[in-house]
Design a protein around this nucleic acid. Sequence first.
RNA 1: GGGCCGUUAGCUCAGGUGGUAGAGCAUCUGCCUUUUAAGCAGAGGGUCACAGGUCCGAGUCCUGUACGGCUCACCA
Length: 490
Amino acid sequence: MLELNEIEQSRKNRIAEIRAQGIDPFGRRFDGALPVISVLERWEALTGQTVRVRGRVMAIRGHGKACFLVLADMSGRIQLYVRSDDLQEPGYEWFRQYIDSGDIIGVEGSLFVTRTGERTIAVSKVWLLSKAVRTLPEKFHGLTDVELRYRRRYVDLMVNTDVRDTFVMRSTIVSNIRTYLTARGYLEVETPMLQPIAGGATARPFVTHHNALDEDLYLRIAPELYLKRLLVGGFERVFEINRSFRNEGIDTVHNPEFTMMELYEAYSDLDGMISLTEDLILKLANEVTRSPVVQFGDQTIHFAGPFARTTFDHALRQYAGLSLEDLRDPMVARRAIEQFGIHMDKSFEYANVVNEVFDKMVEPNFVDPTFVHDYPVEISPLAKRMPDQPHLVQRFELFVGGMEVANAFTELNDPIDQEERFAEQAAAKASGDDESQSMDLDYVRALQYGMPPAGGLGIGIDRLVMLLLGQESIRDVILFPVLKRREQQD
RNA sequence: GGGCCGUUAGCUCAGGUGGUAGAGCAUCUGCCUUUUAAGCAGAGGGUCACAGGUCCGAGUCCUGUACGGCUCACCA
């Protein structure tokens, strides 16, 4: 049972009074209302007519036998003027007695402009649509406590319009990505979230148990291997925008569940993925958010084409002073790890060393969008080798604001090579590297049936939204970020 | 997991060196029929995150715990 304070208890009592009068304090449907924004936009045309709006009472300013309210709906806010002379139903006394800020009401009235020039609805009828027991946060400072904002996002959204704008914009971005891909012939599909083998990425999965099957299942860490099975099946362009789950740390760029867009295009390759990625992101920055220059903390990001390009080896030489070849020497590798202050608790495998050095020394340098391509095969078990340099693969990652936001490759469609790569991963896993990928024999079997040459791309939607909107924490672009449960649920 | 910081009324915040809790908004009462962070007068509202400890006395000092933020580590 939630505890109520004095104010909340008295409101609860008034709800009982309202009910005793035969009025439902939690209302019913309300028809004929216009969104606030369209009342404001069609002001001249609507002046002289009776209009209806509905929404939440955000403020009441009493003025003797009249009062001003601020009414908010999803589209905006408008001022209401309730005058005892003009209010037909209910009576003004009832209205003042039983309507509080925070309540959801419907009103009918006519438009006028106050002396101070504010467009206002003079209200003649009011319907109580839902009574609030709890009070709104302070009207000036709003809700600023970060923990409360995340735990009670519904309150955050009510009072912090910039927060709401962020999530509206996120929705717009996602919907534009969907439209963009659909228009280009990509089929949106849904693949398993519950997987017997969590593949397609290197990460620790969440484990769950299916009772009827009496089998453990994993929440997916990536949809990749299933989407590529669809290429085998004959779907030539597919994409999925959905959640993946990784059982790892939480910080400003990691939430345990996050949204990925992955797409696969048969008969394309890495170059196709580069132009697609660049075109898509530039369109979003220029046409959707309309902010190609974004302030991201103390970094200024310029979304302008063409994005910078460099190779993995070149970037490594530039920022770490070492080449991929240099790091093959265990002595050099150890010295580098020490010199760069990298804490290795994984094995000194080449793949791990390369990853660590790149993450620590190279990645943070890429503020403006930068494609890094030509990755070492050891850290890319699902990408196709470069024909002339078999120790490298046709893969890029896109870095923006020091974060990885996209990862793409020419897909490995050679089942023999794929099986060997899985075997190497499985060996690393057996020797203690619990983040290596698992052998997925059915995926190998799928490749044995023949998968067309293809390009594949994954974009971290949360991070992309962060960058496009200048939000520094992933929690500020996820409506309900994962938080630790509190003992008392208030 | 480590370090630093935070947690006081529904919300936003004050509370030097320890002396028993304050403001604004919100709420309630009265006044006020074009205000807008409306205004004026008054009132109520607190397990100072939780548990120990030191002390005659703890919101304040100490220890631990919980939750959160930043950061490092882990990790894409």
